Amino acid sequence: MKGKKITRKRFLLAGGGTGGHIYPALSIGRELLARFPDAEILFVGGRRGLEGDLVPKVGFEFRAITVSGFERKLSLDTVATAGRAVAGLFQSIAIVRKFRPNVAVGTGGYASGPVMLAAAMMGVPVVIHEQNVVPGATNRLLSRWAKTVALSWDESKKYLARPERSVLTGNPIRPEIMTAEREESAASFGLDPRHPTVLAFGGSQGARKINTAFIGALPSLAAQHKAQFMLATGSDKFEESMDLAARVGLRATISSDGIGRSDSGDIIIMPYIYNMPQALACADLVICRAGAITIAELAARGVPALLIPHPHVPDNVQEKNARAMEARGAARVILDGDLDPAVLESEIGSLLSRASALRDMAEAARGVGQPDAVRKVADCVVRAAQGVSSKA
């Protein structure tokens, strides 16, 4: 990798609002710090986003700016939001001027916009990373000034102002996703690694629609298939989910660790999965939403999925993510409005009955996966710092 030598190593990261924007930035920051242990990392985000809590916990310096999302219709709130955006831009200019980064890296979200714009205005090379098939409004705008746009999907190019500056890198994931072993992971949940395991979850807060459909399908699935089933309900939906399990005839008790287990041991219902890398390591089929990070982790591990896109995400990006996986043979898609116990039982049952179908989907998923995505994105950042172009 040729170019000027990087002497002063300062990297500015910006993104936030949701984990889908924050976690890739944290992964990129860790990779840069691993390459340059003496580097300075500064993360800029919104005052009210998750980033204010998550970023300091990993040891990065955090600065907050004033920012909020735009309403999609003209109103007094829109005017107020515009005022906050201007304030955020001036705050970002002050931060960039003081920190003097080699490169500014944006991972999307409203907080990323003013920071990357300020960096571009001040001559700092900008690298942005896009997680979804359809780039968000912030990244579509910033792609005009970015030195490099790191993409997770090749079809995202057509949405960019300057597609020739894009590079297909994939979506950075946690390294633990790839290092977790099936046998040890199954044992940590009290499961048998020799039997297929079906894992269902609806994100960190759970999804009532998924909980209801999965629990409703369990009696028939457990009776017909020698398989194991895990469900993460979301902490505030655990009690109602256990009540539903009792109503559909599942004999399960809550153990001392706060987890519901069937008498036969083949069904586990828990409020939250704290060790998701281990859960994915022992899963042969996953039922979940279609967030960018989740899909990247599934693909990297080669886990087949039934994807149920969240119906209320802006620009319907989850369905577009899910359809991209479906088109590659790595997943099947069930729309939220079509989801019920009978539909889910049919889909899960058809796959558990055909091991070859699961194997084909797993192979297709691995073909989509980019386990080394964080390295590729970091390469783009280093090239930008050296004044070298990353070519599509």
Rank of each mutant, 00 (worst) to 15 (best):
I6S: 06
D336L: 00
L142F: 07
G369F: 14
N171P: 12
I128E: 12
G387V: 14
D38S: 08
A217V: 02
I177A: 09
I334G: 09
A355E: 12
M325V: 10
A111Q: 04
R328H: 15
A222C: 11
A378D: 07
G337D: 13
G15Y: 00
T253Y: 10
M116Q: 08
E239W: 02
W153H: 15
L50I: 00
F90W: 04
S68I: 02
R208G: 08
S241L: 01
F62V: 00
R63S: 01
R289M: 07
F62D: 00
Y274K: 15
D77T: 04
A217G: 01
D77V: 01
K376M: 05
G337Y: 07
A161V: 14
L280K: 10
H312P: 06
M116L: 13
A82D: 05
K147A: 13
L12C: 02
R10H: 11
G387A: 12
M1F: 13
A290C: 07
L307D: 08
L218R: 04
A207C: 06
T253M: 12
K209M: 10
P277Q: 03
I93K: 09
E347A: 15
T107F: 02
A392Y: 03
Q370A: 14
Q370N: 15
G123A: 10
A362W: 10
A305E: 07
A245C: 10
A384F: 11
K391C: 09
A378I: 02
Q224M: 12
V286R: 12
I128W: 08
E345L: 11
L344M: 10
D360H: 13
S220P: 08
W153G: 02
V248T: 03
S166T: 01
I215R: 14
R140W: 13
M325R: 11
D53Y: 07
P172L: 01
H310Y: 15
P163F: 04
A137G: 04
S235T: 13
G19K: 05
K226H: 10
L280N: 08
K226M: 12
A362I: 07
E40G: 02
A94H: 03
E176V: 09
R194D: 07
A290E: 04
L141F: 15
V86I: 04
P135S: 06
V124P: 12
I177E: 11
N211T: 06
G52R: 09
A150D: 00
R194N: 07
G258Y: 06
